[in-house]
Amino acid sequence: MSGFTKQGPRNDTPYTPTAGVGRRRAGDLSWYQRRQLTGVLCVLPAALFITLFFFIPLVLAFWMSLYRWPLLGIHKFIGVANYVAAFHDSTFLHAAGFTAEYTLIITPILLIVGLILALLVKGSRRGTGFFRTVYFLPVPIGFASASFLWVWLVQPDVGPFGRILQMMHLVAQPPQWLAATASALFVVIAMVTWKTSGMQMILLMSGMQAIPTELEEAARVDGAGRWQVFFHITLPLLRPTLALVLVFSVAGSLLAFDQFYIITGGGPSNSTITAVYWIYHTSFVTFQLGYGSALSILLMLVLAAVSFVQLRLIHRSTEF
């Protein structure tokens, strides 16, 4: 740290080599070239990681999707047969449909709960900081841990949730939550809402605090009511943040795996198998790696399309 003082000689234009800098080198490289070289060397490790463990597997995924590729044994080129098979695979089609259904149900729930929490805890009055912290508390817990918690909570005989409903005389017998598709889905949605709405809250809250208060004031002066201001001023101006929260929620839901694998196990009778769950099953339970890759590519395309549409939404909504 010794060489650094704020009072050091100043230079008007950034990055201009001076006599002071130039004296340090005797080699052939100019100061600029040396800085360029350092830049390349600095980003090299990152580039290597991403090439080796991201771009190569990505290319490999396309390639494998054109083959019949068992874990052991001979790979056979079969063209687009895997893709054709995907559209005749009733479990996959059901899984894709179920994933879409799950996404469509949970996204508005998370948005609304996040919005309500954000409205409750924004500002700086006494207590808001505490409640923010509490609502955010489940966010750092992993999806797997949270799922292992909730799968116990909803057990029919030893689980406390059924018992509490019973004690409140809301049910005669503790319900068999995981025995029916709708109630199993309800449990997963409750768990995910509990675990992630704090995250939505924080994002939406900071979006709200970025809205210039003059706009709301002006509307109020013009005679708008409290809820009119919310629906006609705040909500439209919150669109960039809403779009962002939407992207998070939709991408996360389309990739759902942990919560269904752990809580429902895909049951009852495979009705809660998600797209990623089926890819996992295809690739690592029945070891059809080529077919699994084809399904992965399809998932990637869907996700890219959805993200693209949503990013357009963000882009357009920032031009107000």
Partner: peptide
């Protein structure tokens, strides 16, 4: 933009 769940199979091979 690309979920790692989608490339886990070739990643295993790498």
């Amino acid at each position: 933009m690309i979920p790692f769940q989608a490339i886990i199979t070739p990643l295993y091979l790498v």
